[in-house]
Amino acid sequence: MMWRWVLIAVAAVGPSGCAVFGYTLVRPGAAVDVAGSGLIVSPDRAWNRAGSINGPGKDAERWTLDGPALNELTLYAGIRDGRPLFREEDRRDRPLPRFSATMLPVDVAALFEASYRVASGTSLFTIDAIAPDSLAGRPGFRFDYSYVLPGEEVRRKGAATGAIVGGKLYLISFEAPAIHYFDRDVGAYRAIVAAARLKDDARDVGDIPGPLT
């Protein structure tokens, strides 16, 4: 009998589109202050933004076009020293690695890979390329990756662009199945990265230029 009430609860919460659980619309052209961090992005098309319960944590936002398994944009907005990239589901048995403000780009890519391996349990994750780049006008880096989740046979490709500003990590990643979805939608991610900016109050003399090593 309890399941009936679970169903009713799910059905009631879903269509309400509330910001806590479910998805809300991000309109094209809107200037979005990601997680209130000062990282401003303006998408070129409409996206669906995950609520705080099904999102990645308080320092990040997760957006999708067709569902998170088909195209997922994650905006990490000012991850502080000593914090994980996203919410820890099981801190005791599966603790996530922590970001350090002194990390170099290769370290950030390794942090990203290790976080995915711990969170999803995948052993099939590779960083395919790392190169210098910029985010929000700050020197930074980009890397490409690919992975397969346990229990699935879908190979996904990903791309991420980031910079460490004022000792905080700003990173925008996009991932989608290698068949069709990645190539179709990666342009939307690139448009968001190209137009990303930081509010002036996010500037800090402690910027780390992010040399590639």
Binding site: V10, A12, P15, G17, G22, Y23, T24, L25, L65, G67
Partner: peptide, 13 residues
């Protein structure tokens, strides 16, 4: 299944 049957909605869909 998730976005057309299980009650969760993507606004763009």
């Amino acid at each position: 299944a998730q976005f057309k049957y299980a009650g969760m909605i993507l606004p763009t869909k």
